[in-house]
Design a protein around this nucleic acid. Sequence first.
RNA 1: GCGACCGUGGCGGAACUGGCAGACGCGCAGGACUUAGAAUCCUGUGGGGUAACCCGUGGGGGUUCGAGUCCCUCCGGUCGCACCA
Length: 738
Amino acid sequence: MASVPTYDPAAVEERWQERWSRDHTNEPDLDRPSRPFYNLMMFPYPSAEGLHVGNMFAFTGADIYGRFKRLQGHDVFEPIGFDAFGIHSENYALNVGLHPARLIPQNIATFRRQLKRFGGMFDWRHELSTTDPRYYRWTQWLFLQLFRAGLAIRKKAAVNWCPACKTVIANEQVINGYCERHPDVKVEQRFLEQWFFAITRYAERLLANLDTLDWSSSTIAMQRNWIGRSEGAELIFEAPSGEKITVFTTRPDTAFGATYMVLAPEHPLVDALTAVEQRQAVRSYQREVAAQDLVSRKVGEKRKTGVFLGSYVRNPATGEAIPVWIADYVLMEYGTGAIMAVPAHDQRDFDFATQFGLPIRQVVQRDGEPLPIESQDGILVHSGQFDGLSCVEGGKGIVAWLSGRGFASPRVQYRLHDWCISRQRYWGPPIPIIYCDRCGPQGVPERDLPVELPLIEDFRPDDTGVSPLARHREWYFVPCPTCGGEGRRETDVSDTFLDSSWYFLRYPSTEFDDRPWDPARTRTWLPVTSYIGGNEHAVLHLLYSRFVTMVLHELGHVHFEEPFPKLRAHGLIIKDGSKMSKSRGNVVIPDAFIKKWGADTFRMYLMFLGPFQEGGDFRDEGITGIRRFLDKVWVLAHEAAQATLEPLPAAVARKLHQTIRKVTADTESLAYNTAIAAMMEYVNLAREENAAQREAVEPLLVLLAPYAPHMAEELWAQLGHTTSVFRVRWPSYDAALA
RNA sequence: GCGACCGUGGCGGAACUGGCAGACGCGCAGGACUUAGAAUCCUGUGGGGUAACCCGUGGGGGUUCGAGUCCCUCCGGUCGCACCA
């Protein structure tokens, strides 16, 4: 047998990457595809450290799926881009003392090189960056569509202020009271005028549509949780002075057990309900609470605090006068900012009542015995005509009874808040608004877009709550687009999640400068056929994208309401027992591995670590197993190229069909680890049976192609084929043999 | 507290609708080749026992001819949300 050349991954991979680029192998015809398949993966933010193993894991898994679909005869569009605006990039730039406008292109260049090196099937003609004015022009356009539709609203609100970022951040960016970018910096409460997107108006639809989506169940659960729908009722409590205080409750069945009321300290009726002799105590408590941040207020377990207002309201169920308190455990931004306190059946109310000696009255029991607090598995007592009913029936009855007297109405409450998109920072798209004393806030006319982010050297944020752009005087002052009078630009930039809320709409249309997306292209390619990404975006990016798409659909700009009908969440790569992150210092950069072992080996190694949708433990010992496997394939294929035609041993033929069946099913379901195991079993058997033959090897190379694309191409060519292995059809199996 | 997921050899992990537990890989042990090593190849590898055999999927209980898989319960772990009324 003639000798087989040594497998040299670097040479093989460089050769095929050049050929793919030269032959436009990865660039489908976007205008006339026969079977369009939009294979999307979550685009990266180009950090200075470069692509790490976690990114590689995600991209490899998504790329394998795209290549598999391609081999099954689809025209696969697999674009890539960079989410390069945002606080992360800007903070890093500040740290190293470089301007982001110079830093980001360097980072992108590194990412681009890494993404090419690992062999992704990317269509580089359609690369995008959110920092490109040709892109963010349309981000601003998108803002204007929402503004005109009345869905971008300016309101003064308690917001999360990160003293380190020196900007407002979204609720989603607050982690246990700390800034997600600064794990040791507590977020504070500030009241500022901000732009909000009215996502809460879509809460019901965002929730209901979840039932129509083919998504990982974990992601669905997180979104459902985040939207946080609660059914209950609003009840009205009246003060002797005539003030009506509305509370929200999910337990109207316990109305007879409400022995006091608590308002949020900022509740607008606090002043009116405060007795003269309590005024000083109330003011001082209010000041104390305002000095805290929004979030530490919400972190539980601490002692309850509060102040009696010195007045009473009437419980509409019992008719009794109950005392009114303020306490920081009641939050202004949820429900009505006021609660009826039922200490017998709510843990927080119980804690508060115990601390301040307030009465506790059982209204739910079972067999005359008290139940665990908050249990709904009992019957009503001390509840007048409703005694003896179950909690559910009694609750309905009480709401109906109180409604009839004008004291109640059923109510659905969401935990979701409106999306604050204002950022008092530099590195983002300026919000396209001009303030005019005469006309009010005016949208920048679309013909004047983009509002380019001016290049200013001193982009450092300060503590004033005013964006650095305000210091750029010639940029700041502009004529009002409506009256021509003196106007001032909005100096805030928009949240980076706005950039990423629509990028998938841009990819197929990147060459059009006169429209955000081309209607024909969009109709052909969208919604996205398959989306693969991490659950870290389950409630941020994925919810915002759904909302934006829903609005665009309503406004007639896109033909679909849900952008991602099919989504799969991949797992996390664990290293030394915890997930890879810069703060833990366990980030692994793939470059050295790829240099030593080759991209194909590294791709397969990552996929072999564990189930793709669950993640895996990164240790570098196991990589030799994959390399040994690829070496065996290499030798087998070279020998097959020189073999004479002989019948395939029956055992090998049977195993081949079983392997095709298993690899097909497993690749479809992203069970890449077991697909690889099946190919290993097949190769082991083929070697045992000395089946170094074309019929044995050619189908294997096609099965292998999504996983190790360079090697598959090389060996396919060695077997005498002159066209890419990716133009072949995925092998079929004989069900009788498999 | 609420929601989701998970627990299988020394390690990563297999096991479709309940049907031979431990595929595949790492590691390890022995052997072949070699002056020697590396690489490669072969054999073995859940625990106990000389053996036929016995015991084994976090603990306990249950359903079933049959349970890693289904049900109950307890223990342990991961992730998300959280003074959300």
